[in-house]
Simulated assay, not measured.
Amino acid sequence: MTMIGVLGGMGPLATVDFMAKVISLTCAESDQQHVPMMVANLPQIPDRSRSILNGDEAPLPYLLKGIDLLNGNEVGLIAIPCNSSHHWYAQMCARSAAPVLHIAQTCVDAVPAGISRAAVLATRGALASGFYQQALAARDIEPVVPDDATQLGLDACIRDIKAGRLAEGSAALADVLDALAGSGVQAAIMGCTEIPVAAQQLGETRFTLIDSTLELARATVAYATERGWNRF
């Protein structure tokens, strides 16, 4: 049996959100028609954003141990529902026997045609790493990084969701989107997997939101079902 490997726990609620989206995206009428997953939920991995900003590699040994754990169980694909961890994407790919999806690439690929300016909503570490900005620029889309006041609100949103304060996180995100509404962006990438959890309680927004967790789940399901991993 070939399985999807999920390197998760960053954070745990975002990992559950990813798993739920994989399940909902899979066309199945019985348990046996779903894609098998092995989930390494490893919340003790050091803070990725903090390490990027500090210039240290503290999370990397833990990430590589997670890759080893999944590959030791012969998974056929690895998905990592944590954007900031993709700062170390090259090192994780080099360690892995299985292909590793890149969450930012799957997300940017989903930006609709005709979008010329997109906000990047992410941790400060992911923004400093720049992989979203590079992926957007490669599609001739101008990346818009929030100003410091708006980023402070986004930081609060991410902290609240990690702490289980869902209503507070959603309210903080609503304020962020209101602040961006006059900036001329046509879309916003939810480039931290806590942000889609906060967005679940929002109503209609004034511009398109691209869900990095959802797009990673779509790419994961497509890869697995094309290879028949859900055929019992």
Rank of each mutant, 00 (worst) to 15 (best):
T2N: 08
T2Q: 09
V6K: 02
L7A: 05
G8R: 03
P12Q: 05
L13W: 00
D17G: 00
F18Y: 13
I23V: 15
S24N: 11
S24R: 15
L25I: 08
L25C: 05
L25N: 08
E29T: 12
E29S: 13
Q32L: 07
N41W: 00
I45Q: 08
R48T: 08
R50F: 00
I52V: 15
N54H: 06
G55E: 09
E57K: 10
A58Y: 01
L60Y: 05
Y62I: 06
L63S: 12
L64K: 11
I67L: 07
D68C: 04
L70P: 01
N71R: 06
N71E: 13
N71C: 15
G72Q: 10
G72M: 04
E74V: 02
G76F: 01
P81S: 11
C82D: 14
W88D: 08
R95K: 14
R95S: 06
A97C: 08
V100P: 04
H102A: 09
H102K: 12
H102S: 12
H102M: 10
H102C: 10
A104W: 07
Q105T: 14
C107K: 06
V108W: 04
V108D: 12
D109Q: 14
A110M: 12
A110D: 14
V111A: 01
P112N: 13
G114F: 10
I115M: 13
I115T: 15
S116R: 14
V120M: 12
A122C: 10
G125T: 14
A126L: 07
A126Y: 02
S129K: 02
G130F: 06
Q133I: 04
Q133E: 14
A135S: 10
L136G: 02
P146Q: 04
Q151D: 06
G153F: 01
G153W: 09
D155C: 05
D160Q: 12
A163P: 00
R165T: 01
A167H: 10
E168M: 03
A172Y: 03
A172Q: 14
D178L: 04
A179G: 01
A179S: 14
G182L: 09
I189M: 12
M190W: 03
C192M: 09
T193A: 03
E194G: 06
E194W: 07
P196K: 10
V197I: 15
A199P: 06
Q201L: 15
L202S: 07
E204C: 02
E204Y: 00
E204K: 13
T208E: 14
D211M: 04
T213F: 01
L214S: 04
L214F: 04
L216I: 05
R218Q: 11
R218W: 00
T220M: 05
A224I: 03
T225A: 00
R227F: 01
G228F: 02
F232H: 08
F232V: 08
